[in-house]
Design a protein around this nucleic acid. Sequence first.
DNA 1: GTCTATAACGAGATAGAC
DNA 2: GTCTATCTCGTTATAGAC
Lengths: 231, 231
Amino acid sequence: MSTAQGARARARTEVTAAIKDAARRQLAQEGAAKLSLRAVARELGMVSSALYRYFPSRDDLLTALIIDAYDSLGEAAEAAHAAAPGGDPVRRWTAVCEAVRVWALAHPHEYALIYGSPVPGYSAPQTTVPAAARVGRLLIGIVRDVHGAGGLAELPLTAELRPEAERLAADLAPGLPAEAAAALVAAWAELFGLVGFEVFGQFNRVVEDREAFFRHAVTRLAGSCGLTLRS
Amino acid sequence: MSTAQGARARARTEVTAAIKDAARRQLAQEGAAKLSLRAVARELGMVSSALYRYFPSRDDLLTALIIDAYDSLGEAAEAAHAAAPGGDPVRRWTAVCEAVRVWALAHPHEYALIYGSPVPGYSAPQTTVPAAARVGRLLIGIVRDVHGAGGLAELPLTAELRPEAERLAADLAPGLPAEAAAALVAAWAELFGLVGFEVFGQFNRVVEDREAFFRHAVTRLAGSCGLTLRS
DNA sequence: GTCTATAACGAGATAGAC
DNA sequence: GTCTATCTCGTTATAGAC
């Protein structure tokens, strides 16, 4: 009986994966707004009602795709972080940023799903939050390490932003100075501004050597969070 | 005869505007991917084929909406720029950035149309470029004025990026130092990263006092382009 | 000449009966 | 699960009103 259950569970996992693969293919062709359970079913030779055994609604399928995308991006970023030389924080920072860029260029439609326009009528549940936070956690960790070693540069902070910055530090990066927490959140958004502009074509006919441009920009972002180049 | 032509032209302008208004309403409800000529015609009490007198295809309607959105954003930014005190370049910079943010929050669907995920199957023609460049031109102008007055701070530039930076300067901002041109393009993308994260909900449950946060971030962006606070 | 209305096409989605 | 009848879509051809 346990083997039967095991086989059943295995089959279920396989079908679930096949559904998500087909849905991702459709995402690339028609976009998330037009993702339709029927088309997915057709591609798999199933009938649409059968899909509801695996995903109770179109929105649940979307949520699964979103979590998968965040996790795939997070894994790529974490692998790059682990492979970067531990001694140089700016290197680790740029390695993470470059991994984000490379992943986004390799998976533009999944990138659009998580960082592009919201899908009309869909609202992401809280379930997506942990996966969505993975890249941010990496960046926080790098700055925290440097701060722990006493190597964080001083950053300006206006009186206007101090309360918000302290709240951000307490919520997201306990132990970090408020100005570093605020700079981190800004750098996080700006990183995805750079990546999004390239993936979505805003750099067409503007930036040519995008890799060099990106590396330079994210190195400056590292500096804006208090990381300093090893001299 | 000239009055007849005038009346005809006026009617044509009015109908064109009504079509675009209805299309914008549909954009807000269903998203750009599902924009349908028939639904627009239905809302206006017209028959779908009549729309083809005004827009030769659905893609042409989309293009018109995109250009309108860029122009609306550009006008808002230019008005804010004109109203800002001329003597303080950082003030002018932040005024432009804040106008972009305010416009985007007031027109989230049009913002998604121009800076969000690309519409599947649609590729924007070159016609959109001048309207799309308006905000960028403003930012370039601010930095150029400061440079003309000899007040631009020195900026770092790696050897790796120098050729690209010089090409960027020659193409987009003749007369500016290469490092300032590269920094400007990066700041341009990063600005829309900040705005996009807020408009698309990535700052939900993260940033609370978004106005203060934004002002602080774009002031730092000004510094990254060589603008210095009047002390 | 400028417009709107009718009708139709081929393709695809959708709902429901079976 | 299957089949069918009925929708929607973009687009074109055509005919007639002003």
